[in-house]
């Protein structure tokens, strides 16, 4: 498309060499796609049986006190999935940290961004921070929650780093936050054992629609938000090349 010029000879050579393989893989993948499409179309769109979904939608509010049913599922019915998901991010961050430790800085690092970008990044910081916190603590009432808000928190801490690479990113704080937030999640879960099972909801469900409602779900979301935020920011800072030597 954009690269019609310069590379023509190399492209023709490559074209000849890979022609047969490309055609074969296109044919194979096309067949696979048709097959998958037929399989999934066997259930007409919009008519998949919704038995468990219906049952949960019916009782979720009464049991968890969360207006947002997706939140009720993420933190209540399928809370263990969410713990697992946070663990995957944690594991990936630990593995990436191990892989990149001592990798040195990148090839094109170090230059400061322009004045306007730097100022904008710093002005954006409190705004993003507030927005992220708002999305996290309203996760049981409105769309959004720990993951979405955590991503925004990560962006808040990462944008200034992007603007002025020389400023240090504090990996030690990030590791502390992510470790303790994860512990809080597991400990709340284990506390639920006293009420019957792992992750059983603590506290009452509270007033519907109020900020302080839905029992321990908002607490879990705050833990997730902090953990996701610190993990994402740490991951990006690592790939960016900041502080990798100190890992």
């Amino acid at each position: 498309m954009k690269s019609a010029g310069g590379y023509a000879p190399a492209r023709i050579r490559g074209h000849e060499r890979n022609h047969g393989k490309t055609v074969a893989s296109v044919l194979f993948l096309g067949g696979l796609g048709l097959m998958l499409f037929e399989l999934i179309s066997a259930v007409p769109f919009g008519s998949a049986p919704m038995q468990v979904g219906q049952a949960i939608a019916g009782e979720a509010f009464a049991r968890t006190g969360a207006d947002n049913i997706v939140t009720a599922i993420l933190l209540g019915y399928r809370g263990l999935d969410t713990l697992g998901e946070v663990t995957i991010l944690f594991t990936a961050a630990a593995a990436a940290g191990m892989v990149l430790a001592g990798a040195g800085r990148g090839e094109a690092q170090g230059q400061e961004a322009g004045f306007i970008f730097r100022t904008a990044a710093w002005m954006l910081f409190p705004f993003l921070l507030v927005l992220g916190a708002y999305i996290i603590i309203h996760g049981h009432l409105t769309p959004g929650g720990g993951f979405q808000g955590g991503a925004i928190l990560a962006a808040a801490f990462f944008t200034p780093l992007l603007a002025s690479p020389a400023s240090p990113f504090n990996h030690r704080v990030a590791i502390l936050v992510e470790g303790f937030a994860g512990l809080v999640f597991v400990v709340i879960g284990l506390a639920g054992l006293a009420k019957g099972a792992f992750l059983t909801q603590l506290l009452g469900t509270g007033t519907p629609g109020a900020l302080l409602s839905a029992g321990s779900l908002p607490v879990l979301y705050v833990a997730i938000g902090l953990k996701v935020g610190s993990e994402l920011a740490g991951l990006m800072a690592r790939v960016f090349g900041e502080g990798s030597a100190r890992s």
Binding site: V70, E107, I135, F147, Q148, A154, A155, L162, F240
Partner: peptide
């Protein structure tokens, strides 16, 4: 709406930045 928010923040935002940073780092 929850999924839409997450996809916009994580998929479009963070993934794009991360990919761009990696490309920059490996030249």
């Amino acid at each position: 709406p929850d999924v839409a928010l997450a996809e916009a923040a994580v998929g479009a935002g963070l993934s794009g930045v991360l990919l761009a940073l990696t490309l920059r780092r490996i030249g």
